[in-house]
Each structure stands twice: as structure tokens, then as C-alpha cells.
Design a protein around this nucleic acid. Structure first.
Lengths: 211, 211
DNA sequence: TTGACAAGAATGAACATTCATTCTACTTTA
DNA sequence: TAAAGTAGAATGAATGTTCATTCTTGTCAA
């Protein structure tokens, strides 16, 4: 069940089978295009089990959402623990998101779906959840410590992670055909070094050093 | 019916009433959470008219999609005609998108919904449509002409417009509480000047000049 | 001017289908 | 044996769609 880390046991317990099947189907077809019966068939369980474990279709979605938010949160927590510099933390988070996009695409796709309220009517917007608040904090620290130029927080996070999320989505939609990690260093250079005229590229030594 | 420009005539013809009602409802609740009966009530037309004009629920969605893509395309065409420098074109497009986000939020929201395939099964991904291909071309020209540092095209467009789209979405979700145009110049500075350490800000003269 | 007629747009009750959910019976486990 | 878990047929509410009918508009003959 922990998708991002650890190995799945076998035989997988019924609730994990349900969640995994639902995740795959939701990501492939969209929540509203998936029926409980499809989930039931894919997971090879009975309708009754689904209702026992999750209380219904939206129960599955909610459980998945919680689960996925948690996994992203752990990613951020781990990175925060392992690295001191906020700028390095940002880069490490991006690196891992790119990597997971290749190896665990469904979780990433579900997390960055961006229209959760269309089927999760009660839940917070994803950008108000723990991991994304933490990321905002990290960006603010980076600016406070002078690792990034001081600017408005929304702008800074939108620029850095807007670009990252966009690339992830393009990759998930198979618009980008190469694995994202190939783009990592180029992206970091451009995102943090700025898409500026090459006339002053040589003066931009610090960025290269941090990288 | 042309939402972005021109005035609506009155009394509005029936097909416009249907499209406008559908657009509002789709944006507010999501395609799958809106029934044809709701559209019918909101537009104050009969169910039959909807089927006469659009052939069904997905017909409405398709018509709306075509319409909205067209409006964005016209925006890009106008800007391309009125300005020579690709960099200035990019900035103008961003400026107008920010402005329309405030004045015509539903069209912008529908255009940047990003999950169209979940209800428009046949249509192109939005990033493969005319206006967005044009934007990619503009970004490439800007790099060719040395107005932007040469880098991978995906990275360049994702960084610039990923950030812009992210801010638009945050604004539409009311996460950002101030009108986007207030952020415009700050964003341009950061996006094109780069989020780099302020140590070398002084050397970055060209960016300020273009702005 | 008026009335008959035609064309087609609009109407909405009725229909058919989908699909989340319930419920009761059965199986396993402790 | 009791409790918990699983099974899947049956249910009915929700909702997309159809189509016979009504209304509107324009045309033309008397």
C-alpha cells in the first residue's frame, strides 16, 4: 500500500487491491468515468467488500487522496531532514518528483490532478495541504536566506513549481517523450538561473556553484 | 457569444443562452456534476432545444471547447500582428491572460481546465491546439533571436507559461486574493530575469530595459 | 387585408439506461 | 459458535435522450 517506498506484500490485502485498482482506473479514465463495478472487477473483489472497507465510491477517492498526500508529505519531510539549505531541498524535491513521475506515475498523476474538488467535495484544495504548505515555507526560507532573489511568495512558488508541475503533466500526457530526469539539470539551471539573455550568463556563477 | 470581445446582443439567441449557462455550470461544478436538466433550467430553454442545437451534452462541451480555443487563438493572433519582438509578444499574451482572468474568468477557467479528455473524448489535448502551438513557436523565436537564453523548448515554455498558468489557477481558486494584473510586472521581472541570487541583479540590465 | 398553409424551431413528458448502493446469504476465522 | 469478512443479485434514483406535439414565422392566394 505505501506506493512510493517499501515493497508490496503478497497476497495483497483486499483494501490495497481496491485502492490500487481504483488509482489506476481513476488516473486512466477520470473519477467520473469509472464505475464501482469496474473497480470491483479490476481489483477482483466483491461489491460488498468495497462498501465494507470504504463505504462507497467517494470513500475510495478520499482514502486515496489522504494516502497520496501523505506520501508526498513524507517525501518533503525526508528531504527537509536530509538537507540543510532550502535551495538544495527545493532541488531535491524536484529531482524526486521527476523520478517518481517515471516510476510511480499514477500516484503523481493523482496528486497533481488539480481538479480534486470535482469529485472530492469536502477536501482541501491540494495546494492547502501539508506538503504544499511546507514547500511554500521552504521557498520563503530560501528567499530569506538570500539563496533566491526576494520576490512575492506566490510568484516564486508558481514560477518554480508551476514549471515543474507543467513538465510533469506534459510527461504524463506523453507530450514530452523523454524521461523527466533527463531534463532535471537543464531545468534547474534555467529555473533558478533565470531565462535571461545570455549576455550576462557568465556573471551568474553562484547558481552553477550551488548546482 | 464571442465572450472575450464584442457585446452580446439582446435577446440572446437560444444557442448562446445554452452555451453560456453550460460554461458557467461546467466551470462552477465540473462537467460530470452538471446535468442536462440543470443546463436547461439555467438557460431557460427546453430540453429539446438543447438536443436540436447541440445533439447532446457532449455536443455542448465540444462546441464550448472549439469556441474557447478560438478565442484564445484570436488573442494570440492579435498580439502577433501588433508586436514584432517575440519577447514583447510573450509579455503581452501574459498581460492579457491575467486581465481576462479577472474579467472573463469562466472562459479562462474552461480553457485551462487541463483535464478536458475526461469529458471530451475525441478532442486534442489543449496543448496541441493552434494557439498553444503558436505560443511555443513564439518562445522558440525569442530564443533564436537571443531575447531569451537558449534552452530546451519544453523547459522554456513550461517555465514561463507553467508559472503563468499556475498563478491563473490559484487566482481562479481564490487562493490568490488580489487581481492578477497587480502581479504582472513583478512576475515578468522574475520569470524573465530569473529567480537568481541578488548578488548579480545589478548586472541584469537588459531585462529591465526590455520591460 | 385576411386566412390558409407550410417549414422548422421549441417544447417537455415519457423513456431507457446507467450506476451507486443495499441487503441477505454464504464463507472464513478465531 | 460467534463475529467478521465476502459475495453478488436486486434495487431505485439519477440522468441522458427521444419524439409526438405545439408554437412561431413567413409565404401566398383570395
Amino acid at each position: 500500500m505505501p506506493y512510493l517506498k517499501r515493497q508490496p506484500e503478497s497476497p495483497e490485502p483486499i483494501d490495497c487491491r481496491i485502492l490500487t485498482a481504483a488509482l489506476d482506473l481513476f488516473v486512466a479514465n477520470g473519477y467520473h468515468n469509472v464505475s464501482v463495478h469496474e473497480i470491483q472487477k479490476t481489483a477482483d473483489v466483491s461489491i460488498g467488500s468495497i462498501y465494507n472497507h470504504f463505504g462507497g465510491k467517494d470513500g475510495i477517492a478520499k482514502a486515496l487522496y489522504d494516502h497520496v498526500i501523505n506520501e508526498i508529505d513524507e517525501l518533503v519531510i525526508d528531504v527537509s531532514r536530509d538537507f540543510d539549505s532550502p535551495l538544495v531541498q527545493i532541488k531535491e524535491i524536484i529531482k524526486q518528483l521527476f523520478s517518481y513521475t517515471e516510476t510511480h506515475s499514477t500516484i503523481i498523476a493523482f496528486a497533481f490532478h488539480a481538479k480534486h474538488p470535482e469529485f472530492l467535495h469536502e477536501e482541501d484544495l491540494i495546494c492547502k495541504t501539508e506538503p504544499f504548505l511546507k514547500i511554500t515555507d521552504i521557498v520563503e526560507s530560501a528567499m530569506e536566506q538570500g539563496e533566491l532573489t526576494r520576490t512575492n511568495t506566490w510568484i516564486a512558488t508558481s514560477l518554480i513549481f508551476g514549471g515543474v508541475i507543467r513538465m510533469i503533466q506534459l510527461r504524463l500526457d506523453k507530450v514530452i517523450e523523454e524521461p523527466l530526469p533527463e531534463y532535471y539539470s537543464m531545468l534547474i539551471e534555467s529555473a533558478l538561473g533565470g531565462l535571461k539573455n545570455h549576455l550576462d550568463v557568465e556573471s551568474n556563477t553562484l547558481v552553477a556553484a550551488v548546482n
